[in-house]
Design a protein around this nucleic acid. Structure first.
Lengths: 141, 141
DNA sequence: TCTTGAACCTCTAGTTACTAGAGATTGTAT
DNA sequence: ATACAATCTCTAGTAACTAGAGGTTCAAGA
């Protein structure tokens, strides 16, 4: 059994974040010492590693919650898990796509001004002011 | 002079968001009718277009604020503007890089399970549980 | 001119996933 | 026994909005 600080060190998840996960229900309520401090064992470590891994891959807390639920029921169909992963993948791909559009446009705009002149002549500012100066395919929607 | 609803329609920025921008100082306080409703003119429209354009490119409110400040002073050096743009570009590129790593890993994991089995045998869940099953280069840091 | 209903007003609270800090208590090493 | 790092709970803050309550104003038709 080890303390929350020790768990934090081993998983590289910050102490307040661990408490937060507990509050959110990702981690079960930890056992406590007589003095009310949390104590963890191997199971706690493994679960937190799972969470951290999933979070690192960009899964939302809610998604992680569902994934844990599934992991806790080895006999259930894992369709939901693959769905969640697929949806996360689609999400990531959509974000990449959008960011690439932004990158193109930002890069083009950036190149238009070397920063040595005054605002009035700045291509960066002019581009922002006038949508006609850009490729115009970077709307949010 | 036109209403906030009209401004919203023309810029595709939602009404509450316009009010929010005013509160944040991105938009100057609008003129009001006798009955306290906001009225805008061409200048307001142009400024909001500028904001929307910058936000679409991913600039933070704070960055937009600085950009506006510069635009309001045509005689100042525009170095800050190009710096902001360059930093935003770097940011976008960093995000793309990270997302590409995630995409690779998620895609690999996703392919490992077709969702027809049970949790116990699910490669998605197993990968999350055991970091050794993945390429391991997708930490946050 | 009167009425009605859409549009407007302000204010508060909620969203995501934490982070920071205050003030009090506990664990552990000397 | 004592000191001090680590822990505890609780509140508030972050970014950039969004949603909703409860009340007022504007504009168009009768």
């Amino acid at each position: 059994m080890f303390s929350i600080g020790e768990l934090s060190k081993r998983t590289k998840v910050k102490v307040p974040t661990i408490r937060y996960y507990e509050e959110m229900g990702l981690l079960p309520e930890a056992e406590r010492t007589a003095g009310n401090q949390r104590r963890y064992d191997k199971a706690g470590l493994e679960r937190l590693s799972f969470i951290r891994h999933a979070r690192d891959l960009g899964f939302s807390i809610e998604a992680v919650s569902s994934l844990i639920e599934l992991q806790d029921h080895p006999d259930r169909s894992c369709e939901a898990a693959t769905d969640i992963a697929a949806s996360q993948l689609a999400d990531v791909r959509a974000k990449i796509k959008r960011l690439r559009t932004l990158e193109k446009e930002l890069s083009r705009i950036s190149k238009g001004c070397d920063g040595e002149g005054v605002s009035e002549d700045c291509y960066v500012l002019a581009s922002l002011a006038d949508h006609n100066l850009c490729d115009g395919e970077h709307q949010k929607a």
